[in-house]
């Protein structure tokens, strides 16, 4: 995780890099996005664009680290909204993943069995 100050510097550097890379020439340069009228507070749109780009790079690294095949990463990132990218940045490891994984032993198993019998859980039936 970057400190706020370090992040600010990176954002500035990236802004310069983006301009050098000629992003400003695309037809969407300068366009103000729809989110501007939906989010309650106005944001610095150009700063937000760079932050989204950084978040995207961070999540790309994490998806690869969690075993996603490189050929699918771009498509998976494409579907995420800016808000989702910013929310997920740096937090992918702590996200819950629905997948039925369960590893319990001994007493815990017994307690779960009782919970199941009294209808608190629904853990053991074939899923």
């Amino acid at each position: 995780m970057m400190s706020f100050r370090a992040r600010g510097i990176v954002v500035r550097l990236m802004s310069v890099a983006l301009i050098c890379m000629g992003f400003a020439q695309t037809s969407s340069a300068g366009m103000i996005g729809t989110g501007y009228l939906i989010d309650s507070e106005a944001r610095d749109a150009s700063l937000a664009r760079v932050e989204v780009l950084l978040a995207r790079q961070d999540i790309e690294r994490q998806l690869l680290a969690f075993g996603v095949d490189a050929e699918f990463v771009a498509e998976r990132l494409r579907g995420m909204s800016n808000a989702e990218l910013l929310a997920l940045e740096g937090r992918l490891d702590t996200q819950l993943a629905g997948g039925d994984a369960l590893a319990v032993i001994g007493t815990v198993f017994l307690v779960l069995l009782i919970l199941e019998l009294v209808g608190v859980t629904d853990i053991f039936k074939s899923i």
Partner: peptide, 23 residues
Amino acid sequence: VDKVYLPEKTGSLQVELMAATRT
């Protein structure tokens, strides 16, 4: 599966289900 499954987490994130719906 290729759009939402995370092998090392043996599961799928909510946000990825949303993203795969869009794509």
